[in-house]
Design a protein around this nucleic acid. Structure first.
Lengths: 341, 341
DNA sequence: CTGTTAGCGCGTTCAT
DNA sequence: ATGAACGCGCTAACAG
């Protein structure tokens, strides 16, 4: 039963030829006799020969593995992104190593360290919301392990990344609310230091401008994305002396908390106050109180593009081409409007 | 910038000692001089030495990697399970390789093949709902790669597994409905060949018995777990000549579809008909129409236990102990009752 | 305590 | 067309 995996050495011995001939035959090397090639290939099949990947990794100084570090799998945005990454990687014979930072910088550092130790060829990263310093990423860069960031990208020059343009999505969101008659629109934003928060704010202000509404800083609140933080921020918006009739929320999960809080305060969702959010998560249409619309960020495609970009970089790296500059792909986001209930 | 990683060889040369001394010093081997040990360790730190894992994997004939194959990450049950697996694995210096079968047997086979090629030390598997033959698992067994199954376990003798006892949970569910006054209770079950479907049916019948209700096969429907299948099965229950006042649904996602279908048929959820389901997924309390209760299956703990079991098996394997028999861990499930709305 | 040597499986010269 | 020899980085068995 428990049979050791055969090696080219054993094949060579059985056929009374050298290991290099076996190796060549298995790789359809040009300079190998047809006869020996066939004999080798047949015997290999019979013995269920499988090349020992660990030996190859070692010898090639490559693992054909890409590491993925993201906040958590439980958010559907990220699990969809993973699917895009996996599909693309497998199509190119790469394996994917996944790690969850659970939104903690320390864990993110550990994972990075571990991935480096495991000699992943490259990395795809969506940073944790608590990441304040980027030193741990620099280390990888120095070790010549390329990193492609996606969605949650660090505020750092000279990086490769794939992201969704949140400005346009936010403008669509605010326009939509405006068209529905809303004039006092709040922004329930994420942590200030996140790039995507800045983008949302940017889009929000641009859209207000376009609709000739005055920007009022007291209508903007930042949350740390914990449930308590979400409640806090919602509270700040609800107690505003101007009656906020609608809120653009950082994402669907934040909106969920905000709606819950509003209901508790006897503010009727979708009557007294409306929500628009981001991510278009799959249960929106089943919710008791759901946002009116959500900005789709195309996680699967982001994952796909990020992987393609990374593989491209690895290829250039192999061919030791000169620095190809920094790649950026920015997708457009799109407002999805849910059916009225 | 791009600096090659230093090796023990280079350290040895710089210190004019042999590589084995360096190796020993780095591992705090007993028979090594304090002086050389310190010198080595200091220089190693200075040079940012990091052992080349791929070399170690190769020479130890172990990868310290465990493969995980499951239907999909998007179901919260599985992403929670992954967290349990990852945490336990990392605690023991193991890495986790994740693959999604997307509930297709063919993809499952491919993943298994790929994991074998990558020489994972062991596997944790939750089988796809379409898996009808287990030959691909036998192959791994023969290659001496242990497999621990969890939650979705194959109907096969001689396997290691961790699962939740669905019988007791189902009994709790039916008892709960009975206490609430329901007398015509339907079972919206999963695919017949899934072991967990059989368990649900078993618990269902036992509970009916206990409550002196007669088992009526027309009150049981099987779904293939697609949305269409869920609608079909719900329809079968709703058109029954006896008016079904409550349904035990295979899981929360199935319940979601069933409730949607019921509403469409003008059957009011939580009024004309009540639901109880399984998995206790995190959004239940936010739903417009939610089940009254859900059977918690403790995915994180299942993941944890499965990993511990696998690591145990690997240890025995290393020490080439005699066949330790087959491990089984069966957790109790627990009905979680949601607040009335 | 320390150095020398062998070998893990494979691909890749360099000879022949 | 084929074989012999080497090395990737590391651990371990053996010899001193």
């Amino acid at each position: 039963m428990t049979q050791k995996q055969p090696t080219i050495k054993e094949i060579a011995k059985k056929l009374n030829i050298s290991v290099s001939s076996v190796s060549r035959a298995l790789h359809d090397h040009p300079s190998i006799g047809l006869r020996t090639r066939l004999r080798v290939q047949q015997l290999a099949k019979e013995m269920n020969y499988e090349p020992n990947q660990t030996a190859i990794f070692f010898q090639q100084r490559k693992t054909f593995t890409i590491g993925v570090i993201l906040p958590h799998l439980s958010e559907s945005f990220f699990s969809d992104a993973i699917s895009g990454i996996e599909d693309t990687a497998h199509k190119n014979s790469y394996t994917v190593l996944i790690g969850q930072s659970h939104d903690e910088m320390e864990k993110e550092q550990q994972l990075l360290e571990s991935m480096k130790k495991h000699r992943v060829d490259g990395l795809i990263v969506s940073i944790s919301k608590n990441t304040s310093s980027y030193a741990h990423f620099e280390v990888l860069k120095n070790a010549n392990i390329p990193i492609v960031y996606f969605d949650r990208i660090p505020n750092m020059p000279d990086i490769h990344y794939v992201a969704c343009n949140m400005v346009s999505g936010t403008i669509q969101a605010v326009n939509y609310l405006h068209k529905k008659g809303h004039r006092v629109i709040g922004l329930l934003n994420g942590p200030e230091k996140l790039f995507s928060s800045a983008e949302r704010l940017d889009g929000y202000r641009k859209a207000l401008d376009k609709n000739r509404l005055k920007y009022d800083p007291s209508l903007v609140a930042n949350s740390d994305l914990t449930t308590e933080g979400n409640y806090e921020a919602t509270k700040k918006l609800l107690v505003n002396k101007r009656r906020v009739t609608s809120i653009v929320a950082f994402n669907d999960y934040v909106a969920l908390d905000a709606m819950h809080y509003a209901q508790e305060q006897k503010v009727k969702v979708n009557k007294d106050i409306c929500f628009v959010s981001y991510a278009n998560f799959p249960f929106a249409k089943y919710l008791r109180y759901s946002p009116m619309a959500s900005v789709e960020q195309f996680p699967y495609i982001q994952g796909q593009k990020a992987t393609e970009m990374l593989l491209e970089l690895l290829k250039k790296n192999d061919e030791s081409e000169t620095n190809p500059g920094y790649y950026k792909i920015i997708l457009d986001s799109q407002l999805i409007i849910y059916n009225q209930q």
